[in-house]
Amino acid sequence: MRYGWRLLALVLLLPSPLFAAAGATGYRINPEASQATFQVRLFWLDNVNGHFTHVNGDLAPGPHPESWIVNATIPVDSVAMTSPRMRKMVLAPSFFDAEHHPVIHFVSDPVAQSELIGGGTLTGYLTLRGVTAPIQFAMEPERCAQLSSAPCRIQLRGNLQRSTFGMTSNRVALSDRVDLNLSITLQRETR
């Protein structure tokens, strides 16, 4: 019986990070403080730039200790561009096809907490226009000294091929490569 109490006391004295994944509630993506930007070359001379004003989702505990899974959605109609004509073009069936595919969805592979804090590579799957394909982002925490109750900002930088997601029109005018960058602000979920 004494051995059981000693073991319980020892377990209670262990550092709390060992329990972080098991007891963690996760983080939500603050949609008002997060955004996604994209850039595609136009006639190899100029760029078409746009951004999505809302990124929704969460960062939930992963299957391994101190691992996390990012689950994010972007409403396609939250796209903002300087030209109303260009905005209409990117919402049309030949580009994002917002009417039939109103959201862009990303789910990451499990990522170690150390990479969220210090930077690294975030891999996962992006669903765009009903097509799901692997994608990889370089992850650069701007302010993530530790995952705590304070907001944590993470920058993700990646690119995709339009043709992978069925966007094959305007190939002469627009490049196939699209740069996709996300600025995500994480806030601890309160329960």
Rank of each mutant, 00 (worst) to 15 (best):
V76T: 13
G124C: 06
L14N: 02
S34E: 01
N159H: 15
L10F: 15
T185F: 02
C144K: 02
E66S: 14
H64Y: 13
A20S: 11
F165G: 02
P141L: 09
S94K: 08
T164D: 10
R129L: 04
L160R: 04
V172S: 12
G50C: 06
R153P: 00
R171F: 12
L174W: 03
T190R: 00
A150H: 10
N159G: 13
D109T: 13
G26N: 05
L14Y: 06
M1N: 10
I29L: 13
C144P: 07
M1D: 08
T37F: 10
S163W: 03
H100Y: 06
T82F: 14
Q146R: 15
P93N: 08
Y27V: 05
S83H: 06
R188C: 01
L13S: 13
F96E: 00
D58H: 09
S108Y: 12
L186A: 10
L160E: 00
V107A: 12
N170S: 14
P15H: 07
T132C: 01
T168P: 03
W68M: 11
L91A: 02
I154D: 03
Q39N: 09
I135G: 06
L59N: 10
G119C: 04
T168G: 12
T190S: 10
E115H: 14
G23S: 07
R157N: 14
R162N: 02
A150M: 10
A20D: 07
T127A: 04
T127H: 09
G166P: 02
I69E: 14
Y27I: 03
H105Q: 15
T53D: 15
L12V: 09
L122S: 09
I135S: 08
R129F: 02
H64R: 12
A173V: 11
S83M: 10
C152E: 01
H64M: 14
K88Q: 15
D109M: 06
G119T: 07
T132F: 01
V111A: 02
Q113W: 03
H64L: 15
V70H: 06
A20W: 08
L42A: 09
V111S: 07
E140I: 15
T25L: 08
R28L: 11
T53N: 11
E32C: 00
V90F: 12
F96Q: 01
P17V: 01
H101K: 02
Y3D: 11
S108M: 06
R41E: 04
M86D: 10
E99P: 00
C152D: 02
D176C: 03
N56E: 14
G4V: 06
F137D: 07
R87Y: 08
I117A: 01
R157Y: 05
A133L: 03
G4N: 07
I104S: 03
F96N: 01
V131T: 14
D109N: 15
N30T: 05
S148C: 07
P93S: 08
D97E: 11
I135R: 04
I154W: 06
S78Q: 08
D176R: 04
P61T: 05
L7N: 06
V90Y: 05
L45R: 14
E66P: 00
A145R: 14
G23P: 00
A138W: 04
P102Q: 07
